[in-house]
């Protein structure tokens, strides 16, 4: 179990690190897709089947498309190969990240975590009952957020004066 999880963790982590390091934006976005697929496989291995498929559907099918579209709409030819960040900025960022990493790492590995039997997977029906029962208000709110985000995204991205081009 742990070995499988470790392999999947690498499958997820290596593309993610590569995505942050490569210069080409399209490569970066595609590597992110790979990392998300790895994460979905990890969820699957952990036993969260529904979450894994929902994650793959939303990230690989939705978010990645939007990202690629944004990359193409913002002139990939000129800006996809960005200049390397300035040394000062890179150094500052790396120092901050290594501080966070050491904090997280030490807190994870020096904490004695309870070792209990894995919880059995939740049946899909139970998840649905939870969503439609105690979490109904939250579900509706999320639907509202998505609708508002959709309209807001449209308003932001649409040209100021939409050209009224009728098609004959």
């Amino acid at each position: 179990m742990t070995l499988l999880l470790a392999i999947l963790a690498l499958v997820c982590l290596v593309p993610a690190v590569a995505a942050v390091l490569v210069r080409n934006l399209i490569h970066s976005a595609l590597l992110f897709v790979l990392a998300w697929l790895g994460l979905a496989a990890f969820y699957l291995a952990v036993g969260a089947e529904f979450i894994a498929f929902a994650h793959a559907l939303v990230y690989v099918g939705g978010v990645s498309m939007v990202v690629l579209f944004a990359v193409l709409l913002t002139r990939p030819g000129r800006e996809s190969a960005l200049p390397a960040p300035s040394a000062q900025r890179a150094l500052g960022g790396l120092v901050a990240v290594s501080l966070v990493a050491s904090m997280l790492g030490s807190s994870i590995f020096w904490t004695r975590l309870p070792s209990v039997e894995p919880t059995p997977p939740v049946p899909l029906r139970r998840l649905g009952e939870l969503l439609a029962g105690p979490y109904l208000v939250a579900l509706l709110l999320v639907g509202l957020i998505l609708t508002v985000a959709l309209i807001g995204g449209l308003l932001l991205a649409a040209p100021r004066r939409p050209s009224e081009g009728g098609d004959a």
Binding site: I26, F50, F53, V60, G61, M65, L68
Partner: peptide, 25 residues
């Protein structure tokens, strides 16, 4: 046999257009 196999099918299918994008780009 999966509990959420319909979701699996569409998650797998969603990625196909991504490879068309890869080919074109």
């Amino acid at each position: 046999e999966l509990e959420a196999s319909v979701l699996y099918f569409f998650a797998a299918g969603a990625a196909t257009e991504l490879s068309i994008f890869m080919a074109g780009w």
